[in-house]
Amino acid sequence: MAKASSAIPFAGIPFPRSEYEHRQKRVLEAMARADLDALLVTAHGHLRYLTGYDGLGGYFMPFPLILVPRQAPTYVVREYEVNGVRAESCIDEVVGYIQQQDFAKVCADVLRRYGLENGRVGFELGCWNLAPADVGALQAQLPNLKVVDATRLVTSVSVVKSELEIKIMREAMAMTDLAMRTFQGALRDGVTEAEVAASIHYEIRNAGGDDVRMVSLGFGERNKLPHGKPTRHPLRTNEPAMIEVGGTKHGYAAGLVRSAVLGRHPEAESLHALSEEALEAAIAAIKPGVTAGEVDAAGRKVIERSRRPEVFRHRTGYQIGLNWGERGNLSLEPGAVDILQSGMTLHMPFILFSESGYLFGCSENVLVTERGAEILSQTPHTLYRA
């Protein structure tokens, strides 16, 4: 682990400082193309991407990272979190404020210091962690400030992974595959969701991995709940089971959906077969130069041909990596015009709804390469029969 300028044990940044400086440079280049004088980064995932700090100290106050050409990046944070930001980020210029009502004045003072009273400044208006009241308070301090929606700017850079990030994604996927093997090996009559979840966490810790993100785990009738959390509900013979889980490494997640049937369950089996076909069609459409909407359309056509269009009620997939996902990131959805590039990592969950309400399906986490899509998982997405 690369160390920040801190003597605090185990504090530091996960990657070399040069990695973050390279990311910041690319964001500054994107700002120049957007004709921005400055950018306020407030989304937690984007803050972590650019600084190493997870941003979680900003759970009820904004924590903007201010990027200005030819100036050192400046982090405006709660005074309570200043030591943590200094120790766990690559940012040297940290400015603190104490109460929420102090934020606008302190942040405005920083912008004035850089001569931005009349500047054209980008804000992540479509992301989490920035409230309209925060923007309004800043505008009250700087009435001539030109607020520009820059929701997609950091995404346009972070969507293409570096070789170091791809290595980390592969390590995270190795833990996801271990979680899936544990899930499949634990299925038997009477085992509970909580027992399976505990086994997964134990195996990951035993292997020295970071903890996993358990997005969903459901048995039987509880497969009708989206994002259901593990309970003491048991699996019975001739029932379906589905899990969505992601191994993590330095905050990078490699999510995956896998399904199983203990015995036989014709309704779930039919749904899974359609999910597999749609997923494979979408994966086959992936290559640099195609649009996100074209990939979505390839999978959606399979669903439409099945004459069961009502089973598919969401998008085909999304950009994945740091923080699993961030509002405003690239999305594989109808009409999306984002162009796929080599180095992107995408999660593609085809979770379908049966007529009686079951949610069932599979996904893949893929790397876009010059030759097409590389599937990162070693666990087949075919239905597992226990």
Rank of each mutant, 00 (worst) to 15 (best):
R213K: 11
L50W: 02
L352N: 00
G321W: 08
A108R: 01
N365H: 14
F360D: 00
T155I: 07
L271F: 00
E269F: 07
E88R: 15
S270Q: 14
Y75C: 05
M180H: 14
T176Y: 05
G228S: 10
R232F: 11
H44P: 01
K229F: 09
F123G: 01
Q319C: 11
Y53N: 14
E269D: 04
D211Q: 12
A386W: 03
L376H: 04
L235I: 05
V261R: 01
V27W: 00
Q319Y: 14
E310N: 11
T316G: 13
G263F: 03
L187N: 02
E333I: 09
P309D: 08
L145D: 01
Y318A: 06
A260Q: 01
Y384V: 05
F353W: 15
E88D: 14
V160T: 15
E19Q: 10
A241M: 06
P62C: 06
M169Q: 10
V76Y: 05
V121H: 00
A137S: 15
D92A: 15
W128L: 13
E81Y: 13
I375P: 02
A174D: 11
L225T: 15
I8T: 14
S216E: 13
G58Q: 02
R33D: 14
L217A: 01
D92M: 09
I168V: 15
H233Q: 09
L367D: 03
V290P: 02
Q99I: 06
R308S: 07
V76P: 06
A32T: 13
G208S: 07
A179W: 03
E276M: 12
A7N: 13
R315K: 15
P309V: 04
D189K: 08
D210S: 13
D189Q: 12
G58F: 02
H201D: 14
L367T: 02
D54L: 11
V148H: 07
G12C: 09
E221P: 00
M175K: 12
L130S: 03
R17W: 12
L330C: 05
F219Y: 12
G372Q: 07
I283H: 03
T345S: 10
R23L: 05
R308D: 05
N238V: 04
H233V: 10
Q139A: 07
G52K: 04
R385H: 12
S377G: 11
I303A: 04
V261I: 08
L56I: 11
E195Y: 08
G58L: 06
E124K: 06
L56A: 13
T42F: 08
V106I: 15
I91W: 01
Q100Y: 12
T248H: 01
